[in-house]
Design a protein around this nucleic acid. Structure first.
Length: 551
RNA sequence: GGCCCCGUGGUCAAGCGGUUAAGACAUCGCCCUUUCACGGCGGAGACAUGGGUUCGAUUCCCGUCGGGGUCACCA
């Protein structure tokens, strides 16, 4: 009896690894091409950190003419969630992050290195496990989960390092005969890796983001094949990323401490290890403590949150890019109308420690992004959002021609407005421009300096009767308000008023405020000339009448 | 607890032995021929701490403190 017999006893029908090595040849890519992936478990919505990783991975593959693929890590079937894969695929699509290969739906995939769903790769993992057993580098372990817990308890009590290693690794010293015997007797077992490592030896490792890191070698005989025949994460990672030709593993830095294990696995399997880039997590301030954004506690951890809130996808991506490479901001400033695809991301410029998520900053990025859009784009995107989240807004936007004018206010000039951060701000922002909304509402009129009802009535009437002319250009329009002010005893210039406050009732700005409030029901609006142009004389008239009636 | 990583203004961050220690967001003030927004100008605000090394440390070394990660038949 030897290892080979043992391997055959455990995996009788399993192919030799040479089959897979041939089936998945080395990728034919140009020098320096990065092959990387996003490898989530289908356990619910995509986390903002997952999006962050994907964004970086996608960019890197693009920059180097490499490959970015989506692999589903569903080896823990207990945690799986209905439509988990679909959710992931759709979330990426929402942000225009399209994998070159991998799952495209719950059951479909594209690419030559599949299957891209781990539960479908069972025989592949078993082939490599068999290969390790044949070489005496892996073995069946007959310890029950309960025994495992006992061992752990003992170790904890004795205050020594927990785990299945050294003298604690009972099953590693079974003879081949003993192992075969137990298997034939029907004892249940799992497969463990027989670690050649020693805890008192150090390994040096260079992480693309974290830099040089020293670790003790791995000496744990970790399980590679579970009782259900599926691999653990570590083993699947080694096998898949080898077979799929991954050059760079970009993942969350919670994996950093398993690098010694992974390197060992690659080595014992005879694989060339990939480069690792461990990304610092996105954190949240929780009562003065930093912690990772949590799927359970923080709604903003889910990428779906941003869609619901109406934060533009591009804003989320730009914000993330900003966290990734802080020079992005300067680049953006200097390249206003370039696509973010043109920005060259550098892994080694990424921060080593986790950044606190800053919603306020995100909003600012959103404002900037939206201010750069054309009225048409703003219209399309807010309409799309409204259809899912706000019926009232849909009704307003149904009138496209008019809405385009509204969105066009102060847009497109060198100093575009920056007042919409997210699509959910739109309604509040443009509501008063729609007669059917404005006229049927019990409007508040927050008049300020000029409060006297008769005075307000007089200003409104006089303006309409004597001064307002639709055909006026902006300067003429402006001058007329001054004239109106003068006629009624208000200062035509604010400065003048400030110099001689006693000489006037108030100033032109206060008169304008009356017009503005009567017209829109608010004291803060964009350029009133443009508003009047869009509203048109008839509407202005109706609005003034309403204002007078509701004085 | 062991192991690993990190520590520049409120936040994100440049800087890598000699700098008046950038910039962005937030905040405050002023200006921008009438609001708001935009924009401009300006203000306040930081190298966790103690030891070294050095002519000189935010930058290098060690300790302390603080933060984070990880120690599963989960990923």
């Amino acid at each position: 009896m030897d290892y080979k017999d043992l391997a055959n006893l455990i995996f009788p029908e399993i192919k030799d690894i040479s089959y897979y090595e041939e089936k998945y040849p080395k990728r034919n890519l140009k020098e320096g091409a990065i092959v990387t992936r996003f490898a989530p478990s289908p356990t619910g919505f995509v986390h903002i950190g997952g999006l962050y990783q994907s964004l970086i991975a996608r960019k890197l593959a693009n920059q180097t003419e490499g490959v970015f693929f989506l692999r589903i890590e569903d080896t823990d079937q207990k945690r799986e969630v209905e439509n988990g894969v679909t959710d992931i695929v759709n979330s990426l699509k929402e942000f225009e992050i399209e994998p070159d290969e991998g799952m495209t739906s719950e059951t479909e995939e594209k690419g030559d290195y599949g299957p891209y769903k781990q539960s479908l790769r069972k025989e592949i993992y078993q082939a490599y496990a068999k290969y390790l057993i044949e070489q005496g580098k892996a073995y069946p372990c007959f310890c029950t989960p309960e025994e495992g817990e006992e061992i752990r308890a003992k170790q904890e009590a004795a205050k020594i390092r927990p785990g299945y290693y050294g003298v604690w690794a009972k099953c590693r010293n079974n003879t081949v005969e003993e192992m075969c015997e137990k298997i034939k007797n029907g004892e249940s077992y799992i497969i463990r890796f027989k670690s050649p490592g020693r805890e008192d030896r150090k390994i040096k490792h260079h992480d693309v983001i974290k830099g040089n890191v020293d670790f003790p070698e791995n000496d744990q005989d970790i399980v590679i094949i579970k009782a259900d025949g599926l691999p653990t994460y570590h083993f699947a990672h080694a096998v898949d990323d080898h077979l799929m030709g991954t050059t760079h593993v970009i993942r969350g830095d919670e994996w950093l401490s398993s690098v010694p294990l992974h390197l060992q696995l690659f080595h014992e399997l005879g694989f060339k290890p990939p480069k690792y880039a461990h990304i610092a997590p996105i954190m949240k301030n929780d009562n003065g403590n930093k912690r990772k954004l949590s799927k359970r506690k923080d709604p903003e951890a889910a990428v779906t949150y941003y869609e619901e809130e109406g934060i533009p996808e591009i804003a989320v991506k730009e914000y993330l890019l900003n966290i990734a490479n802080s020079n992005f901001e300067n680049w953006r400033r200097a390249n206003q109308d370039k696509s973010i695809d043109e920005f060259e991301l550098q892994l080694n410029k990424m921060s080593v420690s986790g950044a606190l998520f800053d919603m306020v900053k995100l909003y600012d990025v959103g404002k900037l992004a939206i201010s750069r859009m054309t009225a048409e784009e703003v219209y399309e995107k807010s309409y799309k959002w409204a259809k899912k989240h706000d019926e009232e807004l849909v009704k307003m936007l149904d009138d496209k021609e008019y809405s385009l004018k509204v969105f066009g206010i102060e847009r497109g000039n060198k100093k575009p407005r920056k007042d919409i951060a997210k699509w959910s701000d739109v309604k509040e922002n443009i509501e008063y421009m729609y007669d059917e909304k404005f006229m049927n509402k019990n409007q508040e009129y927050p008049y300020q300096v000029i409060q006297d009802k008769e005075e307000i009535k007089k200003i409104l009437n006089l303006y309409l009767e004597k001064y307002y002319d639709e055909k006026d250009d902006k300067q003429a329009w402006f001058d007329k308000i001054k004239e109106l002010s003068g006629e009624m005893g208000y200062a035509k210039e604010v400065k003048e008023f400030k110099e001689n406050p006693g000489k006037y009732k108030a100033h032109v700005g206060d008169v304008s405020t009356v017009l503005r409030v009567a017209l829109t029901g608010r004291t803060n609006t964009p350029d009133m000339y443009e508003i009047m142009q869009i509203l048109g004389k008839e509407s202005i008239q109706k609005r003034f009448e309403k204002a007078i009636k509701e004085l």
